[in-house]
Design a protein around this nucleic acid. Structure first.
Length: 484
RNA sequence: GGCCCCUUCGUCUAGCGGUUCAGGAUAUCUGGUUCUCAUCCAGAAGAUCGCGGGUUCGAAUCCCGCAGGGGUCACCA
C-alpha cells in the first residue's frame, strides 16, 4: 500500500479502552503508517449521559503506552480540527440544515413512548421496525428542539469491504434514522460520516457491530453527495469463555491493566496484530516495524478470534527473552519485590539475567526473585528439609544430620571459592566426587538453604550473584537451624 | 422475527481446485540438556476442514440448501 492513507480511531469516552477496542486502533494505525499517511484520534463525545470523566485521558494513555501515536487529535493541532465532536456541533448543524433544505431530513414529532410502542408492535408482529413506515406527511418545522431524522431513499446496495469482501443488503436495511438528537448533539450515525469526510479519512476501519448500519451510511453519503471512504470491517475479539464479543461487561480487561501486570507493549501489539491477522507465512511474532511493513487489511480474518491470555504470555515471554538486558531492566523497574529498591543496579541486572527466561510478565518478578533481596524464612527452610517435594530427596529420607553433613561440606568448599561461576562449578563438581554424591542431591540441598525454595534459577549462577558473604551466611543459618 | 456476517486441531492460524487422508504456533504429555522450575532441542497426541447435496477426473477450497454461532433492527457508539 503505497497510497497515502488517513485513518482514524474514534472512541467515545465512556470508559477504559479494552483490548478489543485497541486492536481496532492498532490496525488503523498500521494502515496509516505503512501508507506514510496520518493517524487521527477523534473523540466521539456526543452522548453526555454515558460519558465518564477521565476516560479520554485513559484512552490516550493506553494508545501512548502501546506506541500508537496519533498525528492529529484533541491534544495536537491539525488542519482538520477540532477533534472532539462536542466542539464541532456547529458543523453538524450546518450539514443538517443542508439536508433539511434539500428535503432530506425532517423533524421527528414522536415522543419516546410513542416510538417504543410502535417498536413493541413491530416485535409482536415479528417484523423489523422501520421508522420510514411511519414517516409523517407534514412534519413540523425543525426548531432544534425536536430530533432530526434523515429521510432515506431505500434501495439495495452492493459494496466492497476491505476485510469482508463483497457485501450486499436489501432496501429493508435502509431506514430513516436520527441525525441530530433533541439535545442538539448529533448521533454517531451522522457525525462520523461528516467528520470522516471533512477530515479526509481514506479508510474507515471499525469493528463489526456497525456492519448492519453500512447501507444506512451509504444512503447518507449519497444524500450528502460526498464520496464514500474505503470501508474495513473488523471481526470481533471474543472473550475467552464464550463466543461473544469481548466487552467490558464480560470482563474484558483494560489495556492499562496489562501494563500494570508488566506486559511489554511490543508483545501486546504483536499478539493483538496476530489475533485475526497473519501474513500467510509461519511467522508467529512480529516487531512493530515488521507489522507496518507486512500488515494488509485483505489478510485480516473474517471470523472472530478468542482472546487467549496463555498465548499472550507466551508472546510476552518471548519478547522478554529477546530484549537486551539494559532495555529489560528499564521495563522491569516498577516490578521488583520490596527490598530491591536500595540495591545497586548491577546486582539487579544480574538477577534479571538469571530469571529472565522463566518470566512471562513482570508481575512474576517478585515471586521469582525475593530471596535475592531478603533472607528466606527459617520456617520455610525447615519445612523444605523435613518435607521435601523433590522426588530424589523424598526417596532418600534424609535426617537433619545428613543435611548438615552436606551443608558443612559445602560451606567448607565454598569458603575457598572466588565465587565466579566457573570456580563455583569447578569446586562443587569436585565436592560431588569427594562426597560421592550426585547433583540431584547436593544441589537441591544447597538450593534450599540459599533460596528457601526448591524452585529457583540454576545453582552456580544463583550463588555467584548472591555473593560469597551472603551465601556463607545463609549456609551457616541453615546448619544452625537443623542442629537445633 | 426480518436483515446481515461468520464456521479448519482446546486456542491463534496456513490453505485460495490436484505436490495436503490438512501445515505452523500455543496449550497438554514424553524424552534429552550435570539439580528443581524455565529456556532450548527432539517426539507424541490433537481437525472425518459445521452438516447435506451438487459441479468436477479431482473440493477445506466453487455452487445450492440446512444447521449452529454472532451482530443489528436506540434521541449508544
Amino acid at each position: 500500500m503505497s497510497q497515502k492513507a488517513r485513518t482514524r480511531f474514534a472512541p467515545s469516552p465512556t470508559g477504559f479502552l479494552h483490548v478489543g477496542g485497541v486492536r481496532t486502533a492498532l490496525f488503523a494505525w498500521l494502515v496509516a503508517r505503512q501508507g506514510k499517511g496520518q493517524f487521527i484520534l477523534r473523540i466521539e463525545d456526543t452522548d453526555k449521559a454515558r460519558e465518564i470523566a477521565g476516560s479520554e485521558k485513559h484512552i490516550q494513555d493506553s494508545l501512548r503506552w502501546l506506541g500508537l501515536q496519533w498525528d492529529e487529535g484533541p491534544d495536537k493541532s491539525g488542519s482538520f480540527g477540532p477533534y472532539r465532536q462536542s466542539e464541532r456541533l456547529h458543523i453538524y448543524k450546518e450539514w443538517a440544515e443542508t439536508l433539511v433544505a434539500a428535503g432530506r431530513a425532517y423533524a421527528d414529532h414522536f415522543t419516546v413512548e410513542e416510538l417504543n410502542s410502535l417498536r413493541t408492535q413491530a416485535v409482536q408482529q415479528k417484523k423489523p421496525f422501520l421508522f420510514r413506515n411511519h414517516r409523517p406527511n407534514n412534519p413540523p418545522a425543525w426548531d432544534g428542539k425536536l430530533p432530526l431524522r434523515f429521510k432515506s431513499n431505500p434501495k439495495s446496495y452492493q459494496w466492497q469491504d476491505e476485510v469482508m469482501g463483497d457485501l450486499s443488503a436489501g432496501p429493508e436495511s435502509v431506514d430513516d434514522f436520527i441525525i441530530i438528537k433533541s439535545d442538539g448533539y448529533p448521533t454517531y450515525n451522522f457525525a462520523h460520516v461528516i467528520d470522516d469526510y471533512l477530515m479526509e479519512v481514506s479508510h474507515v476501519i471499525r469493528s463489526q457491530e456497525f456492519l448492519a448500519s453500512v447501507p444506512k451510511f451509504l444512503n447518507l453519503y449519497e444524500a450528502l453527495e460526498i464520496n464514500q471512504p474505503k470501508l474495513a470491517t473488523l471481526p470481533y475479539v471474543l472473550g475467552a469463555e464464550g463466543r461473544k464479543k469481548l466487552s467490558k461487561r464480560d470482563g474484558a480487561k483494560d489495556v492499562l491493566s496489562y501494563k500494570n501486570q508488566g506486559f511489554l507493549p511490543e508483545a501486546l501489539v504483536s499478539f493483538l496484530a496476530t489475533l485475526g491477522w497473519n501474513d500467510g507465512t509461519d511467522q508467529e511474532i512480529f516487531s512493530v516495524y515488521e507489522l507496518v511493513e507486512k500488515f494488509k487489511l485483505s489478510k485480516v480474518q473474517k471470523s472472530g478470534a478468542q482472546f487467549d491470555e496463555t498465548r499472550l504470555k507466551w508472546v510476552d515471554g518471548y519478547f522478554i527473552r529477546q530484549l537486551p538486558i539494559e532495555e529489560l531492566e528499564k521495563q522491569a523497574q516498577d516490578f521488583w519485590p520490596p527490598g530491591a529498591q536500595g540495591v545497586n543496579g548491577q546486582y539487579r541486572s544480574s538477577v534479571l539475567g538469571l530469571v529472565r527466561q522463566r518470566l512471562k510478565c513482570f508481575a512474576e518478578l517478585p515471586e521469582l526473585t525475593v530471596f535475592f533481596f531478603k533472607e528466606p524464612e527459617a520456617q520455610k527452610i525447615l519445612d523444605l528439609y523435613t518435607h521435601p517435594q523433590d522426588k530424589q530427596l523424598v526417596k532418600l529420607k534424609y535426617q537433619n544430620q545428613d543435611y548438615v553433613k552436606l551443608l558443612r561440606a559445602g560451606l567448607r568448599e565454598l569458603d575457598q571459592s572466588s565465587f565466579d561461576e566457573e570456580d563455583l562449578a569447578h569446586r562443587l563438581n569436585n565436592l560431588l566426587e569427594k562426597l560421592e554424591s550426585k547433583p540431584a542431591i547436593l544441589f537441591p540441598v544447597l538450593r534450599i538453604a540459599v533460596s528457601g525454595s526448591q524452585i529457583s534459577p540454576e545453582l552456580f549462577g544463583t550463588l555467584s550473584v548472591l555473593g560469597k558473604a551472603e551465601v556463607l551466611d545463609r549456609l551457616k543459618s541453615a546448619i544452625a537451624l537443623l542442629e537445633k
